[in-house]
Amino acid sequence: MGISGLVITLTQRDEAAGAALAKLRGDPRLTLGERNGPRQAAVGVTPSVEQDEHLVADLRATEGVVDVEIVFVGLDETTEHHTSPRATGTGGVGC
């Protein structure tokens, strides 16, 4: 399982934000937490690292979502991993 702590920033437009929130609530991968203005706390749980990435990509593509920040990543023993040719080499920016 990949477990991510997310901060989802919603648009200031109420109507679009409401629609986005409804969509988020309906996403079985997500558990929503506190909200502070446009910033919504959430936890995403997926079976694999790859699907974690899909989840974040999906969220970013959701209308009414302005930004998605990953503030916590946890992996438990059952997390699956894929190998990506992109992961090798000298690149990588942290923090």
Partner: peptide
């Protein structure tokens, strides 16, 4: 060198951690 940005830093982190 100042490492160049990669689009999938999160993924790289997982790989590295593993």
């Amino acid at each position: 060198a100042n490492p160049a940005a990669v689009p999938d830093k999160y993924h790289a982190r997982f790989e590295s951690a593993q």
